[in-house]
Write a protein that binds this DNA or RNA. Structure first.
Length: 238
DNA sequence: ACATTAAATTCGA
DNA sequence: TCGAATTTAATGT
């Protein structure tokens, strides 16, 4: 247990392996990339830890290098009043909070790690600097806003679906979004428990649904994860 | 809630 | 450094 363990615990400044999993980095030219790499912070977060809190002033634009985060308005919402809603699951390659950074507001949701994860962030000032000078970066942000809007509209429908199979199916499909989460391969690493937290169902129920989806040929259930065989079928599951 | 199986960790050479 | 033994985590019913 040497080289790898030591590296895992010490190397949490950005390493090259982290840079590879930042999808928009390739769109930047050399000087832009240089500044980003210099400003980039990479941290490891433990399960349950909050990456950002409702009401906190915006400081960073965040992305998931590896792991699984939950975007929600639950857990001691500082502004009070509402009941817990999970807006989205966030997984490898996903960047979030651009809307908040753009408007320079306070966060309107909590981001909580569902498992040990590696999260990267660039300061809001760097984000704005990139917006001001890189067309490629602008395209990425625009794509991101557009796709996420589509996801939220989809999420509204999910809430209305009483059928848990369909809810699980569409939540999974959302996590497999190839543009928003380019780091997810064909196998999504997520436990049935974690999926339960995300969808708002018990693990047992999730397990049933996954087996049903597997019978339908949409996915294959694997230990510690799910392999998507037919994304379209997942999306359209009824 | 429980039994089974996979993975991660520890331990001894 | 390897693999067997033990512990922990995830799954299926």
């Amino acid at each position: 247990m040497h080289a790898s363990a030591v590296r895992a615990s010490l190397s949490r400044g950005a390493g090259p392996q982290d840079l590879d999993s930042i999808p928009w980095l390739v769109r930047l030219d050399a000087p832009e990339r240089k500044r980003v790499v210099a400003d980039l912070r990479v941290v490891e977060v433990q399960p349950g830890e909050l990456v950002c809190r409702i009401g906190r002033p915006v400081s960073y634009w965040f992305g998931v290098i590896d792991g699984l985060l939950k975007m929600s308005n639950d857990a001691a919402a500082a502004g009070g009043s509402s009941f817990p809603i999970t807006f989205a699951g966030l997984t490898s390659g996903g960047w979030f909070g651009e809307g908040t950074v753009l408007k320079n507001e306070v966060y309107r949701y909590n981001i909580q790690a569902l498992r040990k994860s590696v999260v990267a962030g660039i300061p809001a000032s760097t984000f704005h600097w990139l917006l001001d000078r890189s067309i490629g970066f602008n395209r990425f942000v625009m794509m991101q806003l557009n796709e996420r809007l589509g996801q939220f509209i989809g999420a509204r429908e999910i809430d209305r679906l009483s059928q848990s199979d369909a809810r699980v199916a569409r939540s999974l499909a959302a996590l497999f979004h190839p543009l928003l989460y380019p780091g997810v391969g064909e196998v999504l690493r997520i436990t049935q428990q974690e999926l339960g937290y995300l969808v708002g169902l018990g693990r047992q129920r999730v397990n049933r649904s996954l087996l049903t989806l597997q019978d339908g040929g949409a996915i294959r259930v694997e230990y510690g994860g799910v392999r998507v065989l037919d994304l379209e079928r997942l999306r359209r599951w009824v």
